[in-house]
């Protein structure tokens, strides 16, 4: 009993420590969003206020950053989802060493520090601009989108690859055999199969773009995104306004997670009933013979 008890106590203590570490700072930050002192302070708690939230709405710099983040996020989604899809399809069509070389190149951005991606993007496009005199290319929005997309495309590719692994090649062949052309096979068979992955990679791409700091801070040049504005603020000095923003972000995230989970459960339930139904029908199978039908 004692050794069991000791283990349990240790496990409990460890779990407490772990999740305390994970959530403690966030909870404390949440509390400071509602406390009156204008330095984020959780203890002592002086008086409840929501005035930091209303300040947030009037903060034009934050709002502009948010708008820029949304635009860049949309651009990243528009670029990375097709590129990731193409990357995954090419991946399934090469073998052995060619595949190794290809994988090494396209996955390397995932293992490269984000600052380096930002730096190299800026340097490269600056030179492209110099040589081609296409000034519009040396633009914070464009560079942020391209810079982030180097590694976000790899994320998307990995999402597509995971889904493609479950794709039954025979379906492609079946469509071809029925007379479809290659583009038709792609549109009718492969793309619908990949649709959930298109969706999840788009979400992943947007979120990765939205919260990216390291690459963006180099590539954005003179413009600002929500995250770079935030970083600047936090470095200058801390105000409970940032806590309030964090609380909002967490609330939105939580709502999203709950909605997603609910949707997933409903889908699972639907599938289960369909399957059960099919099984019932199999029991009475050899009933409708062809003879009866003809």
């Amino acid at each position: 009993m004692t050794s069991q008890g000791v283990w349990r106590a240790m496990l409990g203590f460890y779990l407490l420590l772990f999740f305390g570490f994970l959530f403690g700072p966030l909870i404390v930050m949440g509390i400071t969003a509602f406390n009156t002192p204008n330095y984020p302070q959780a203890y002592p708690f002086e008086a409840f206020t929501i005035h930091w939230f209303s300040d947030l709405l009037g903060d034009s710099e934050l709002m502009e950053g948010l708008q820029n983040s949304l635009i860049i996020g949309a651009g990243v989604v528009a670029l990375t989802v097709p590129v990731g899809l193409a990357g995954a399809i090419v991946m399934t069509q090469v073998y052995w060493r060619a595949r190794g070389l290809y994988y090494l190149i396209v996955v390397s951005p995932v293992l490269t520090p984000g600052v380096i991606l930002g730096i190299s993007t800026v340097i490269f496009w600056k030179d492209v601009t110099r040589v081609t005199d296409a000034k519009f290319l040396y633009d914070g929005f464009f560079l942020a989108i391209v810079g982030q997309s180097t590694f976000i495309s790899a994320y998307c590719m990995l999402v597509f690859l995971a889904r493609l692994q479950r794709f039954d090649r025979a379906q492609e062949e079946a469509a071809l055999d029925l007379g479809a052309t290659q583009p038709q096979v792609f549109r009718h068979i492969l793309l619908p199969f990949l649709r959930p992955a298109v969706f999840s990679s788009a979400v992943l791409a947007f979120l990765s773009s939205f919260e990216n700091y390291n690459t963006t801070t180099f590539a954005i040049l003179a413009d600002k995104t929500l995250v770079t504005v935030l970083a600047g603020r936090v470095r200058q000095g801390t105000t409970p306004e940032i806590s309030a923003l964090a609380v909002l972000i967490i609330a939105v995230t939580l709502a999203g997670a709950i909605a997603y989970e609910a949707l997933r459960r409903r889908e699972a339930a639907r599938e289960a009933t369909a399957l059960a139904q099919a099984r019932v029908e199999d029991g009475g199978e050899p009933g409708p013979a062809l003879a009866a039908a003809t």
Partner: peptide, 17 residues
């Protein structure tokens, strides 16, 4: 090519869509 032959194949695993 398979899509231009007067044949139709029923696959071992059926390959329904």
């Amino acid at each position: 090519g398979a899509n231009r032959r007067p044949t139709a194949l029923i696959f071992q695993n059926l390959a329904l869509f």
